[in-house]
Design a protein around this nucleic acid. Structure first.
Lengths: 343, 343
DNA sequence: TTGTACGCGTTATCAG
DNA sequence: CTGATAACGCGTACAA
């Protein structure tokens, strides 16, 4: 059995209220008594009981982070940013992922205990699951939504300006690289990131007077392998002066590049390939990948920051923080403008 | 204010004990009463209070996971495995990282509350920090150590048989590829993984009658970039028939390959390059990377599994689970034995 | 400046 | 099968 506040009080010859004061608001207590209490605390290795404390304070010091998946560097970086910021704000981070196919039931499982977490940062990223608003609302918890906004709950949000990023990329291809044909390789059609990027693709193509052919639009699963296989089949057909592939993430772009090269299609000479996110992969391809930088870790950190702010001040009006997504020109678009950053 | 057990009791016209029984051990209560109580629970959207519950049960249902860093796929996969298993075991996962330079003080910060977590999974991976045993012991918590064993605490452990993996790789280079010279590129000298891999490197070289030259041993920081820069400088000097680079992780191996190719050293023809871990990078290099598969996500899952088992049964004797590390032969060693798996 | 006593919401014990 | 009541450990009015 570990020591309780009462044990400390006895050893220091004071009442438990004094001990409590020493722990929480030292100023209110005589310096000498204070020392005695602290000595007792150390001697007994006393640590306050989290439950008893939470019961009074109605705060656990824990914030939850729920992601749609935990695979890959994209989520990994969000977690890293969130974790660091949580520590900064002196909170603990409870991590969970909503697996595909999870109903609201098993969703709530982790949060079915009342009071366990002080707030929740949640990323959905699939339009299939957009109905969780009311479910979240029933939690009666400060909510921060990442990379989206959700109907049916009041919440803060940190969003990436994907549209601007995707527009910048498409304009770069069309204006600077004089693209004549652009193939789009996205993730699932229900994925909101893919949707935003696809829309920008269509818009710019249209404005440039280019056709967005149906046969130039693919929806894969964001993985290197599926993109590689696709490129093996199609790359030679895609090849041509000022022909480009716009992949919705870096991993697929890398897969396309490898698949193209494997079928003797030279990148970027015969086919330009660009990605999205600027994960580490983007610096590991040859040629180096032209992509759009998404500040993933900053997104995670900002989410936790907003969350803790709201926990401290619940009545603030909802905040939406927008983070920029920035074009990063490297080699795989073949325009020779390496290192240049457009916005 | 959210509903308490008392509110439910009143609404259902029973005592709080009955409500409690309905929640925890339904069998002991009359079916009809049961229904009435459950109706009340739904009507009031009652959720048990985590603190009051924990105060009685002395269990939070939370397990902690502390990693030395959160960067990169290695840790990301451990987290993923751990998270999935935690959910499987109906526990929540509290994630934290011990930043370099953290003293035991700020270490404990996250766990300074007594009772918040039911057990702790820790990975240290640097010999600099091996003194945390006693610190962990003072937590009086079930402890599982990942990829290491620690003096001064009783704990379960899940370890990767790195030595076998590294030996298999080195033997493959020496026996099958007829290596005449092997350059070792590791992480920090204090890193335990690097140490294990280095030792296997030395042992096999020695047994094969080959010299482990000092100038053939490098200690970098596990990143692609530093390995790339090193290769740019050294690759041409390293090149030669049956010359190899054994990198201590896949990212560095990828960096070496890219650096070598950039300086017109052909891989694997002029220089073989092999890695470690079998992260996704290993399938994204060209040539595909020969490496050692480390079951990262399984390690995370096993750790949480052991932890929950011990929480349920605290008096079991300590368990050490060893996971195999398996040689994966692809293209970058140039032996033409692709797909073959040795042990 | 310090101590007393109550209440937070739950489970466990024991008596009906 | 059900209800009353005592813990669990802590924060905080309120009294001294």
């Amino acid at each position: 059995m570990s020591a309780s506040i009462e044990d400390v009080a006895k050893l220091a010859n004071v009442s438990i209220s004094t001990v409590s004061r020493v722990i929480n608001r030292r100023k209110l207590v005589n310096e000498e008594t204070c020392q005695r209490v602290e000595a007792a605390i150390r001697q007994l290795r006393y640590r306050p009981n989290a439950f008893a404390r939470g019961l009074m304070l109605r705060k656990s010091g824990i914030v939850g982070l729920v992601l749609p998946d935990l695979h890959g560097e994209f989520y990994s970086e969000i977690i890293r940013g969130a974790s660091l910021q949580a520590r900064e704000m002196r909170h603990n981070l409870l991590l969970s992922s909503a697996l595909p196919g999870d109903d609201a039931e098993s969703w709530l499982a982790a949060f079915s205990q009342h009071g366990l977490i002080d707030g929740l940062a949640v990323m959905v990223s699939d339009t299939m699951a957009s109905g969780i608003g009311p479910t979240l609302a029933e939690l009666h918890l400060p909510i921060v939504v990442l990379d989206d906004e959700i109907e049916g709950v009041e919440h803060d949000a940190v969003i990436i300006d994907q549209r601007q990023g995707a527009l910048a990329m498409m304009r770069h291809l069309v204006d600077d690289c004089r693209a004549k044909r652009v193939i789009f390789v996205g993730g699932l059609e229900t994925n909101i990131d893919t949707q935003a990027r696809f829309k920008a693709y269509c818009d710019v193509l249209k404005k440039a007077g280019l056709k967005a052919h149906n046969e130039d639009q693919y929806h894969l699963d964001y993985t290197y392998d599926s993109a590689y296989r696709l490129a093996i089949q199609r790359a030679s057909a895609w090849a041509g002066q000022h022909h480009y592939v716009f992949a919705a993430n870096d991993e697929m772009a890398a897969g396309i590049i490898a698949g193209a090269i494997a079928t003797n299609v030279s990148v970027p000479h015969d086919l330009g390939v660009v990605g999205f996110d600027d994960t580490r992969v983007a610096r590991m391809t040859s040629p180096l990948l032209t992509t759009v930088r998404v500040p993933m870790s900053r997104m995670g950190a900002t989410a936790i920051d907003l969350l803790c702010q709201r926990i401290a001040e619940p009545d603030r009006s909802p905040a939406k923080v927008a983070l920029p997504a920035e074009l990063v020109v490297r080699e795989s678009c073949g325009c020779g403008m390496n290192g240049r950053t457009k916005d």
